[in-house]
Write a protein that binds this DNA or RNA. Structure first.
Lengths: 234, 234
DNA sequence: CTGCAACCTTGACCTTAGTCATGGATGCGG
DNA sequence: CCGCATCCATGACTAAGGTCAAGGTTGCAG
């Protein structure tokens, strides 16, 4: 059964691995899996949350639509990442909408099950809290980046998160299309294009969805500069 | 004893009220209270968290300092609000620094106590999760505002959060100095000044630290406009 | 192969906000 | 009352990024 393969991936996710051993099988056996087409909604803002979600394959974005129609991308999740933990466990309404940005496979764990298990094992609460804290942390970092860095610096930072090494040359593949990257970084596609152009002087070559970084350390320094200085270097 | 007065305030805080009745006294009797001068640090980024904090009096800001030296204000807490819940319960390091922005009184609940209580009552985990989720939610809203609104619109939004009513005229007092408001809204003090000037045409008068709103509903509409449209109106 | 659509890049121009410099108001210690 | 510091407002200028329009690639259906 194809689901066995999916379950193996699920077992490797951060959330599931942090759960107490003895409950994992119970949770997985009650989870269900669903395929989403590119652009399909997984849930909408203000809907009541009834499950926790784990990305098994593809990419999922969380976003908010402002009253004026502008869309703000809040986060983008890859295989093995989970979202909606806190809101599901509390039974709140989602503060964001979720959409598959590529064809995607998502596992859903009913929150009712989680709640009842949590009553017998507080460790589950700690696992959920750990995931929630990570999301909190990533939002704080996004805020810092938006408030303290230029567009080009945010792009550089984004490239660095894609490349494992901390120094030397590195080749990374842009994981989704540029419109989405721009949204995630709080800019328009045109600005992203121009930011890429500027990063040439910091040793970055973009060709299609491949980015060649001449020296990761140099790029890191670029992100840490004062915007004005960074500008002068480029 | 002055602490009895503080404890009464603590009992009224959202976090404490959401805790199970029978543990509240235990927690309060092990909490300690401390006075902070304006500008004094409460904790620093990357320090290990050992307590949950509840503001009893005054104002506290959480902020990050970017590698380039720029400071990004993440949130500002008033009397009765709590912070550091998730990070304390997990024993992580703080992702932000905290500082008293006025003379302030803060209650600290040792996380060790909370952790041991949580093992016997999972409800405590849910309370912590609720607070954490609220913080998460507020960060998501900040992100949306930064990405989708102009400075003047964010200022308008800020004024609306200070005024209870949803329509009609309203007078609010700016709770802390304008440098800090500017930081919280992701702009420079000069830009805040100019934003205030622009809001005159939306029916807002600023005099010292008093803001007079002619019509809250009109101001709300201003925040929801497309930036370009909002501009034309003004 | 052709035509079309999706995606990306580029250029010209404009809006927004940051920077730097100045000056006014307020408050406080001496 | 004077001098000084703090906070805030304003003006002139610069920089960063959004908007609009045009054009290049790529890939796919017919």
């Amino acid at each position: 059964m194809a689901h066995e393969h999916y379950k193996a991936i699920a077992r490797n996710s951060l959330l599931i691995r942090s759960l107490p051993e003895q409950h994992i099988e119970t949770l997985l056996s009650h989870a269900h899996f669903r395929h989403y087409e590119r652009g399909e909604n997984i849930f909408l803002q203000d809907e009541e949350a009834t499950a926790i979600h784990v990305v098994i394959d593809g990419w999922v974005k969380l976003f908010r639509v402002a009253p004026n129609g502008a869309e703000a991308v809040v986060s983008i999740f890859a295989c093995g990442e989970s979202f909606g933990e806190a809101v599901a466990l509390r039974g709140n309404n989602y503060p964001v909408s979720a959409e598959a940005v590529t064809a995607a496979e998502v596992m859903h764990i009913p929150s009712s099950l989680l709640i009842s298990l949590m009553k017998e094992d507080p460790q589950i609460g700690l696992s959920i809290l750990a995931s929630t804290f990570m999301h909190l942390h990533s939002l704080v970092e996004q805020l810092e980046q938006l408030k303290a860095q230029t567009g080009a610096q945010r792009v550089a930072e984004f490239l660095l998160t894609l490349c494992r090494s901390n120094s030397g040359p590195c080749e990374v593949i842009l994981p989704y299309d540029k419109v989405l990257i721009a949204g995630r970084l709080g800019m328009k596609p045109e600005s992203l294009s121009r930011a890429f152009a500027r990063l040439k002087t910091a040793g970055v070559q973009i060709k299609k969805n491949h980015a060649a970084i001449a020296d990761a350390k140099r790029l890191r320094e670029y992100t840490e500069d004062d915007p004005a200085d960074a500008w002068n270097k480029a």
